[in-house]
Amino acid sequence: MNKAYLSIEALGVSFSKSGRVSEVLRGVDLQVQQGEFVSIIGHSGCGKTTLLNVVAGLVPITTGAVILDHQAVEAPGPDRAVVFQNHSLLPWLSVYDNVKLAVDKVFGGKKSGKQRREWVLHNLALVQMTHAKDKRPAELSGGMKQRVGIARALAMEPKVLLLDEPFGALDALTRAHLQDSVMDIHAKLGNTVLMITHDVDEAVLLSDRIVMMTNGPAAGVGEVLEVPLPRPRRRLELATHADYIRSRSRVLEFLYARHALRDVA
């Protein structure tokens, strides 16, 4: 067994609802190195969100194991911060207080009050949201809310950052803008990132590796693609880059030729 930072080993997840057992994931193996950006792509309903939630500890493991930094994952914790698809900021707290809640909880005993306040502002600055720190989530656009969600996750200094289709609900321009921000932050901080997406371009642009999942039930890892593009990446230059086009068509071919969704939708 190699010494991966995050290691998912022979993972199987089943849900039983009123006596009927449905197997969502079977035999998932995945190793992620420290500082690596890994995307998980697959059709809707293939269990990719379940996989992320297992790593987050929000969904219990049925068989196999998830090991992060030599420790088995059993329950949720701030070392695996999640950026949820629909931001899930608390609407009764200001932007600042949303991040502060996480910072106070994670660094309550380790940093002084002043340090924690500065740390909140530092993370808001990282996602360029300092200007809105006193606003309520309802006053923000979708993209801004997602930025705050990212700031809250980053502020926990997680070992691995889990992104659950973070840009899925955004329009194309805002999405591009946020993808650039995430690339900047990843370049600056070197986080280990696991991201769920159903956007092929997003996966190729952001990832070091793309994990393509087969269709459920009992979904697994179909293929893993290394994206050999140098960083920093710029979307305009990549559009005509041979490796980009090759990676993109590999993923498309996997999703729409070999594992096309059979007339379900």
Binding site: G57, P76, P78, R80, A81, V82, F84, N86, S88, M156
Partner: peptide, 13 residues
């Protein structure tokens, strides 16, 4: 909302 519950669980409130 389950989202708020998840936030609480991740933060270990």
């Amino acid at each position: 909302p389950q989202d708020y519950v998840n936030v609480a669980r991740v933060l270990r409130l």
